Structures are given as C-alpha cells and as structure tokens.
Computed example of a mutant assay.
Amino acid sequence: MFDPKKLLDDLLGSKVPGTESTVRDHAGRATQMAKDNPLAAGALVAVLLGTGAGRAVTGSALKLGGLAAIGGLAYKAYQNYQKGKQPADASAEPELLPPPEDTSFHPSQAPQGEQEFALTLVRAMIAAAKSDGHIDEDERKKIADKLSLSGIGGEAEEFLLAEIEAPLDLDALVEAAKTDAQKVEIYTASRLAIDPESRAERGYLDMLAGRLKLPDALVDHVEATVTAASETPAKPATGTIWGA
C-alpha cells in the first residue's frame, strides 16, 4: 500500500526546489528529477491533475508537510474567523505553524487516523482538480504516460488513475469529515488544488462549502489564508451557514 501522507506531500509540491523552474518546464526529464529530488515527482502529479504550477503552497507551509500544512492553514483561517478578523489580514500574518496538538485540527487528533484522513484529503484535491471536466480520453492517456515516468510508485499511480476515472461522490467526501475541523480542512485541501478560474471550478467549491455547511465568513477566511500561502492570488468565495 502506498503512503497517503507522502502522496499528499507530493500533491502540494509545485516548484522544483532550488530553482525557479516548474515541473511543466521539465516534464521530459521526469524520471531523473524524481531521483534527484523527492518533490519533483509530486510537482509533476500536481501539474497533471490540473492544479497548475503556481497554485501550490510555498515557504513555511510547504516545509510542514501536506497534512500539517493543510491543518495549519485551516486552523489559522478558523481562528481568524472566530476572532472576527478581516480576511485581508491574512497576508500580513507571520509564517504558518502546524496546528496545536490539543486542537481537533492537529493530524494526531483525526478520529479515523492520520493515514485515512490524508487519503480523504488526497481524494478531495483530485475531485477539485477534475471539477472543470477537462479530462477527456486523450488527456487520460497523457496523464497515465506521464505518471509512469514520475517515480511515485505503481500503487500510488494506480490509485490516482482510478480516482481520476471515478465519478464524483460528494456524499462520500462530506461524510468522511468526522469533525467540524475536518470539514474546514477538506475545503482547504480542495481550494489548494485549484485556482478557481472557471465557472465550473468556482461552482464546485461553492457546492462543497454548502454541503460541508461552512459559513460564508469562514470560507472567505480560508480563501484569504490559502491565497497568502500560495503564489497566485485568487478571488474571494461565498459559502453557507455553519451547522445549518
């Protein structure tokens, strides 16, 4: 079985560390990149899933690892929301820290276990990445060909291809959230996967926020927090009523 936490780390990597290049620029050298740098394969996966080379987290968020980074971003957004701050304040805040161990946002507090919740977050990212419906048969073949060069491992490769092929199951995704904190984290992971540039992507995120029963103000804080931790600015979003 592949390591879901490692795959989540891979999905959040976009730049080739130590360079200003993206994996898209070096796709022809994917195998060597995977050997030279552990994040290179992940960067390729992110590009293949449509997340774009400039949409992943950077800096301190990337250093934390995928599970802690998503938890930290979700926790920061929730804390700012609780304190009544303005979403715009997120850009002026210090480096991202992992969520405190005594909060439900910390990976160790996941009722279903870290690995299982990491798998849920991976599925959330893939669902968001394919929400614009651009993956046709030719694109699937290209994805399969490039994944085979990425060095992520056969089991992880098979899992990703199966998830890309699978129909969207929003019910299963929403039901996978065992706590209110995990609802915020699932939305945060989904937002990290895409910069909603199309009506379909924006509609998907709005639908997800509604199904997770996240309030508008909290969704706005997630949007602002993710934007502050990413390379590409994004538009604010709306949601629904917390707990409704």
Rank of each mutant, 00 (worst) to 15 (best):
Leu49Ser: 09
Pro17Leu: 00
Ala30Gly: 08
Ala27Cys: 05
Lys141Asn: 08
Leu44Ser: 09
Lys83Thr: 00
Val219Gln: 15
Ala172Gln: 13
Gly203Asp: 12
Gly154Asn: 08
Met33Leu: 15
Arg211Met: 05
Lys178Glu: 01
Asp89Pro: 08
Phe105Gln: 03
Ala156Ser: 15
Ala46Ser: 12
Asp132Gln: 09
Leu192Thr: 03
Asp206Tyr: 09
Ala74Ile: 00
Val122Lys: 01
Tyr75Ile: 09
Thr103Met: 06
Ala30Cys: 11
Val226Glu: 01
Thr227Gly: 04
Arg123Gln: 14
Thr22Met: 06
Val16Asp: 03
Gly71Cys: 03
Ala177Cys: 11
Gly28Ser: 09
Lys130Arg: 14
Ser21Leu: 14
His134Gln: 10
Gly54Gln: 02
Leu160Pro: 09
Ser60Gly: 07
Leu121Trp: 05
Gln86Asn: 12
His26Gln: 13
Met207Asp: 10
Thr179Gly: 06
Ala43Leu: 07
Ala40Arg: 08
Ala229Trp: 08
Thr120His: 12
Ala144Asp: 15
Asn80Gly: 12
Gln82Asp: 07
Thr227Ile: 00
Ala129Trp: 09
Val174Met: 10
Gln109Asn: 14
Ala193Cys: 13
Leu44Glu: 10
Thr31Ser: 15
Phe159Ile: 00
Asp136Trp: 10
Gly243Cys: 13
Pro167Val: 08
Gln86Ser: 09
Thr188Ala: 10
Ala27Ile: 12
Val122Ser: 07
Asp169Cys: 15
Lys146Ser: 15
Asp10Phe: 07
Asp195Met: 00
Pro233Arg: 10
Gly18Gln: 02
Ala41Val: 05
Gly72Met: 11
Glu157Asp: 10
Ala129Pro: 02
Lys130Pro: 01
Asp145Phe: 15
Gln86Ala: 14
Asp216Leu: 04
Ser198Met: 02
Thr51Arg: 04
Ala68Thr: 00
Arg55Thr: 03
Glu185Gln: 05
Thr51Phe: 05
Ala189Trp: 14
Pro167Leu: 07
Gly71Thr: 04
Lys76Cys: 09
Leu170Ala: 09
Ala127Trp: 09
Leu147Glu: 06
Lys213Phe: 07
Glu231Cys: 04
Leu67Lys: 00
Asp132Ala: 04
Lys183Trp: 01
Leu149Thr: 13
Ala176Asn: 03
Ala129Glu: 15
Pro233Asn: 08
Leu12Cys: 07
Leu11Gln: 04
Thr179Val: 01
Asp136Ala: 10
Glu175Arg: 03
Thr225Val: 15
Pro196Asn: 02
Tyr78Met: 06
Val57Thr: 14
Thr120Trp: 05
Leu97Ala: 12
Ala209Ile: 10
Phe117Val: 09
Val222Gln: 00
Leu147Trp: 14
Lys85Leu: 13
Ala69Lys: 05
Lys15Ile: 10
Ala156Met: 08
Ala30Tyr: 07
His221Thr: 05
His26Pro: 05
Ala193Pro: 09
Lys85Thr: 08
Gly243Ala: 12
Arg123Val: 04
Arg140Phe: 02
Pro4Asn: 11
Gly243Gln: 13
Ala69Glu: 02
Ile241Val: 13
Ala229Tyr: 07
Gln115Cys: 02
Tyr78Ala: 10
Ile164Tyr: 10
Lys15Glu: 08
Leu147Ala: 08
Ala144Arg: 14
Ile194Lys: 15
Ser108Lys: 09
Ala228Thr: 03
Val222Gly: 05
Gly239Phe: 13
Gly210Asp: 07
Asp171Gly: 03
Gln115Val: 10
Leu62Val: 05
Ala53Phe: 06
Thr22Leu: 06
Asp169Thr: 00
Glu95Ser: 15
His134Pro: 01
